[in-house]
Design a protein around this nucleic acid. Sequence first.
DNA 1: CTAGCCTTGATG
DNA 2: CATCAAGGCTAG
Length: 826
Amino acid sequence: MEGEQKQFLSDLPKDFSPFSETNIKVKEEDPFLFYPLKDNSSADADLSPGCSYELLNLKLSPFFETNSEVIVEKPFLFDTPKVNLSEDANSITDADPGYASFDLTSFFHGNSEVKKRTPSLLDLLRAYLSLPLPKSEVKEENIFLEGFPRDNSSDNGDLEFLNAETESQCCYKGKKEKLSFINSTRDEASSDASSAIKPNLSTITNSTTDTLTEDKNVESEATSEGPGVDLQLQPASIQSPHIGSRWRIHWSNTDGGVLRRQMTDVERMVLRPNHEGEQCPVCGDRVSGYHYGLLTCESCKGFFKRTVQNKKFQQYQCSADANCHVDRTCRKRCPSCRFQKCLTMGMKMEAVRADRMRGGRNKFGSFYKRDRAHRLQRNAMRVTVIPSSGVTSQPQTFYTPADHQVSSSTTDQNTHIHYYDQTKVKTEFIKTEYDAHLQSPTLSSSTNQQISDFIMRPGYLVDHQDSIAALLNTTNEDHLIRFPTTYPLAEVKQEPFDYSEHHFVHHPLLEYQGYTSTANYAPMMPIPTVTTAQSVVTSTSSSTTGRVSEPTRTSPVLPLCPAPTEKTVDHFYNSNMAEMCKTLPDDSQIIRIFNAAKGMKGEAHSFAVTVADENLKVIVDWAKNNQLFGKLQLDDQMNLLQTSWSTIHLVDITNAMIHGNLSPTYKITTGEDVSVGAVALLGYRLYVNTWNDIVNRLRNMGFTKFDYCAFRFLALFDQSMDHFQAVSAARSRVLQAWAEVRCSFVSGFMSIFEEIRRLSHDAVRYLWSLQSNFPELWASLRPDTSLVLEMIKTSATRPTDVTSTVPHISVPLQQTTYAPVVYMTS
DNA sequence: CTAGCCTTGATG
DNA sequence: CATCAAGGCTAG
């Protein structure tokens, strides 16, 4: 569980202090030096009692660890409360002006008393929360262009573009504009157009005069592929693209820095459905194509299929610590970890058809296509960043064998790759879009079937409504949007759906009036895109935030293009339920957590705490990225989390249980079978039946993803915090949005939510009671490394709430500016 | 159970 | 009609 602490730590800047007040910093290269942070230019250190200093980087000190805090309780050797340290030659060595330096070991003795404190997990959590969300350094009007071929299934469109022998520099001019790639050979193109387009082109060079002939025109045909950006190549200097020649594009950012990318053979390879040389993100074997949402090898494809089809993931058990290495040579060794890795890397259980229908072209077609394009783009972005001052260093080659892995994953969980923050925005969208594709006839029916199967297993009440509800809750709120719960599944037939055009919401009135159409999307009303996604929560998943560290902060790098249709909004209150839903964590998260935790050693309580700790991370990230939550004062954020985490946690497990995503019991390393209820209730078995009953009731009521979303938000903005205007406002907004989709019939759900909330608080009280009633058991839960336990302890032992002394740390709004993906017309 | 190869069949 | 991701089959 050391990892827990690391998790938060790793997302913190190196020099970040969890103690936000008065710090003394010790220079790393000079570990015996420290100085008051308040004023570096003064050597005055306030050594009066009560003064608190933090010691950093005290590697050489035998007494103090890095990040430990020293509280001065009595004056030091010096008898004055304030002393100019640098003037005392006895114990203070000379130092840079402004730095007091002395030997700590001699300093902290005599009549001084020093208490040491190391940062608690809550300190780290606080620090983590106070970190600003990653923010792009590139201004909207200067967002770069991305250029890559419109992905039109390997016809010669690719070829033309790829081999265009041109180089250009361009700038972003509006999200909705289309890309025109104008060939110089087409005269009419040169003058026309695009009054809105400002080419801003610089030198166009032909790097090679290629020999291959085929002179294909790259046309400026406007397509409706999606919003793009006009890219116009200066006609005069452009020659016709030749097959085999190189093509370059530059990006500009605010500072005039240029990001350069050059098409390579490898890119060409990537663009074509030829995955030679690609490595499976799960095991590293050779990729054979897209399988279940990810470019994987044949064996992992088969493994994933078998696992999901036969629900083997419920039986898998890691004999080690659930973090086995998985590669080609050892992939057979631990199916549990292999499956975990499959999920982590982005394979989708929903893509396995329960009806086992064969053939049929994949329904993710456009997703995969776009993914290819994004992969290309992503790789390009990671390639060469030419600093703003530097004008023309040579473009570097940028593909390394390891590179593709990031691109192989359609989600952003890869831990070892630096993405730029906007990537995640984009990725989030892809996920959504991807999920939308899951509803295609083949997949949706099978998904439904599959989930029904889960629900149908012994021990579960089920009826037809359940399976519908299950379907509706598979992956994405869009299911809900387009499949009202009352419609029989058999009628489902999907129509093409364009996210770019509308945001749909369930229209309550039509549904309420019993509008019955077999066209299941009929009762939906397109809502003009006034309210948009991104509002409730910025999409950035900060579980990866820390790993993004370098590029987001220092490089002039341009953010990756999000999906072209991404819309943004900057206010929570504009959001509707569908948009809120988009911020919810992936369904597979809780499955992953359970499977990973059951392999850890420890008995049932330990299992429950591990699950809770893991889920807490997800919860924290979710909350942190919520715009409203992020604007609260740090202490309020902490309080809110302390109050609400247990309810959110219980809601999460309840939701997963309702939809059959969890096995009813988990066999843990002690051999014991632990029911999900016991885990959900943090070991409190007394109410497991009560909870099971709640699960069944909600399931029978057709608990949807919207309801789940509402529960989660209501839990976060806990009613006990309603005295904060921001919290109560958020609550009403959630209730309002929820009522819109639920036709105001939410009271039944609300009362159950209340039950859940009470249960969760009871569970927390129970767990805390172990501390006094069963100290050994409590100790075995390793309270020093569990954030959950620390939260419980803090809540339980918290004296009357003291008003915050911590200054408000405002978290900047997530930048909501996105550059479009540009699709090359052909 | 694994994993390579085969068959399917909606899609563009 | 070619594609290409699904599922199926089967030797090892």
